[in-house]
């Protein structure tokens, strides 16, 4: 039966150095491909507008400048408040949604739960069918009072059936049922079993779901568009960016019909490098938060590290 292996035994079994080199190259190329545009955005955001005009986007601009950054901060006094809003929404939303997801997924994972089939289908069904935008809007705004407040930016995104199913799969594939059986026999309560026994083992899964949730909350702008109209100090960062972005697009699309009005308005719109600045402002904080989640996801990476 199972013998507690020692790391050195296992390492003997790793892939050959040649194969590993191939892996390094394949993954490295792809990773590079993923990061290049990012570097590009940062370069563009620091490029002088005149350089973009004359030679277009380039990895080596003719001139560097921080004008666009300064313009962004001057033009958007709201930006710091929006940073706070985004962080607040993301932290609270991620904690709540991951917690709810774990609870629900755990219930679905328990084969001895009488209503498992019902609850499974209950969440799955909503993944496929929905009532549409307007009915949901009415329920949120008029029934639940999600209007001009932080709750309106958090509550509508709390549950994602996809995540529930993924979480359940994580539980299924990493937590042996005997463990729960044993814990129950030991007299551990259900909540205790979940948080003290199951969650620690499924840590990579929980961290993955938390990461996905955090991204959803951080990137959302649509809720703000729908529910934050009068109290715009609550706008998250992404909503600010999308507002600028949409303004530009809208005027482009409508200018043929609006005539002079659109032309004069469009002249006030931000420039290419400013848009890239906003992308940088949005992506950098969440990218910085990434290693926090990654620590758990990659914790047990490579066979050598023993867990459980």
């Amino acid at each position: 039966m199972a013998v507690k292996g020692k790391k050195k035994n296992l390492r003997l079994n790793s892939v050959s150095p040649g194969a590993e080199a191939v892996i390094y190259v394949i993954l490295g190329l792809f990773a590079l491909c993923c990061i290049i545009p990012f570097v590009f955005v940062i370069i563009i955001s620091f490029s002088a507008e005149s350089s973009i005009r004359s030679i277009g986007y380039s990895f080596i601009p003719q001139a560097w400048s921080t004008d666009a950054f300064r313009y962004a901060f001057r033009k958007l006094p709201q930006i710091w408040r929006s940073y706070f809003n985004s962080i607040f929404i993301t932290v609270v939303g991620t904690a709540l949604s991951t917690f709810m997801c774990a609870l629900y997924a755990y219930v679905l994972y328990r084969p001895d739960f009488k209503f498992r089939g019902f609850f499974n289908f209950f969440s799955f069904f909503t993944m496929i069918f929905g009532g549409g935008l307007v009915p949901t809007y009415i329920v949120c705004k008029q029934v639940l009072g999600l209007n001009e407040n932080y709750a309106a930016l958090i509550v509508p995104l709390l549950v994602n059936p996809f995540n529930i199913i993924i979480m359940r799969t994580f539980f299924k594939s990493s937590v042996p049922l005997e463990l729960i059986e044993a814990a129950t026999i030991d007299g551990s309560g259900e909540y205790n079993t979940l948080f003290r026994v199951v969650a620690p083992i499924a840590k990579p899964g929980v961290a993955t779901i938390a990461l996905l949730n955090a991204l959803v909350f951080w990137n959302d702008w649509y809720l703000s568009l729908l529910y934050i109209q009068r109290n715009k100090v609550l706008q998250p960062l992404q909503a600010l960016l999308m507002e600028l972005q949409n303004n530009v697009e809208y005027l482009s699309r409508m200018s043929g019909q609006m005539g002079a009005a659109a032309i004069n308005e469009a002249a006030k719109m931000p420039t290419q490098s400013l848009r890239m600045v906003l992308v940088v402002l949005i992506v950098v904080p969440i990218a910085c938060a990434y290693p926090f989640f990654q620590r758990y996801i990659v914790a047990g990476l490579s066979v050598g590290s023993v867990k459980g």
Binding site: V134, Y137, L225, L226, Q229, K232, V248, Y250
Partner: peptide, 23 residues
């Protein structure tokens, strides 16, 4: 007066939804 300062980008979606929702 309580103004709602719609912007170029958000006016369409937001007002259409608000009108349909009977805001």
């Amino acid at each position: 007066l309580e103004p709602i300062w719609g912007t170029w980008g958000d006016f369409d979606t937001a007002t259409v939804t608000a009108l349909a929702g009977g805001d």
